[in-house]
Design a protein around this nucleic acid. Structure first.
Length: 303
DNA sequence: TCCCAGGGAGGAT
DNA sequence: ATCCTCCATGGG
């Protein structure tokens, strides 16, 4: 099965997107040239493998799934899932054109080396929340390792149709009742208690992740910040990469430094002001602007 | 050995 | 409001 160019709005760089460290979920594993992940679709666990063919400008995805799919219904579900998770219906050319170089916006200088880089959107909101919390004062390498260990040590093991087994991300009640000692072995360190408390609040209905979809940006953010270990940046990560609220612009140390340098002539501006600045200047593109600035800063080693 | 990592809590001013 | 220090662990 496949996703054709017509179903992808603008360019795509699948590998750059999957390896860009977004906090919707840890990176997918690479196997025989295919990146793969597994999800539960209404009680059916499916492993899907994805590879990009064609070019960045003329993208095309080849997909295989490991599951019984005699009537082809699962194929449609997986394709819909991938379009959603990889945000293939975001009009990237509209983004590039809205701030094209002739308009003189600073963000345009990041475009040439990042063509096809897309935001991702978490399918499993609880996993996205835990991933976002795990990034606090942590490296991409370490938080992805921790979240994968949470999945493999605490998540349900499901058998696929080919006889192999994979782990899905655990449910909130599982992590809420996990012992701090066991969970600490995933390398979460002092964030362990944050993860357990977040799981408990979701389990007990004090925090309804689905319901946050209905709230506007400010209201949802205020609700998230009530949790211990969740401040403005982690909240923005979940709002953007989990809930898909693209006006959110998480300001970490990289964004803070690059925005100060490129937009404020190096003046000292607080992270909160940078976040507000990006939201007000770029509106619903702020999330993409943040993604591009992050990788531009890291690639060019400009800051 | 030292330093830092996609920050936040708790404190002081 | 804004500024400080400390936080646990693993890589480089």
């Amino acid at each position: 099965m496949e996703i054709s160019r017509e179903q992808i709005l603008g360019p795509l760089d699948l590998e750059a997107t999957l390896l860009s460290g977004q906090t919707s979920e840890p990176q997918w594993d690479l196997e025989d040239g295919y990146y793969w992940d597994a999800e539960d679709f209404g009680g059916r666990a499916v492993k899907y493998c994805v590879r990009q063919t064609g070019t960045r400008e003329e993208p095309h995805l080849k997909i295989t799934i490991t599951s019984d799919d005699s009537n082809g219904s699962l194929a449609r579900i997986v394709i819909h899932h991938l379009i959603n998770v990889l945000r293939l219906d975001d009009d990237l050319n509209a983004f590039y054109q809205a701030f094209d170089p002739t308009k003189g916006d600073i963000i345009s200088k990041t475009f040439s080396q990042l063509v096809g880089l897309r935001l991702m959107r978490g399918n499993n909101l609880f996993e996205s929340l835990i991933s976002s919390i795990s990034t606090q004062h942590n490296s991409i390498l370490l938080w992805t390792k921790s979240v994968k260990m949470i999945r493999d040590n605490f998540g349900p093991s499901v058998r696929l149709s080919d006889g192999s087994t994979v782990h899905l991300f655990p449910r909130p009640e599982t992590l809420a009742s996990a012992s701090e000692q066991d969970l600490e072995r995933t390398g979460l360190a002092y964030r362990t208690k944050y993860v357990i408390e977040a799981a408990r609040r979701v389990r007990d209905g004090e925090l309804n992740l689905e319901e946050l979809h209905l709230r506007d940006y400010e209201t949802a953010k205020a609700k998230l910040i009530e949790l211990p270990g969740i401040g403005p940046k982690v909240a923005d990560c979940f709002l953007l990469y989990g809930l898909g609220k693209t006006e959110a612009a998480p300001v970490d140390i990289w964004i803070h430094r690059i925005v100060r340098k490129l937009y404020f002539h190096g003046a000292s501006v607080s992270t909160e002001k940078v976040a507000r600045f990006l939201r007000e200047r770029y509106g619903s593109w702020a999330g993409y602007v943040q993604l591009y600035l992050f990788h531009y800063a890291r690639k060019t080693r400009l800051v």
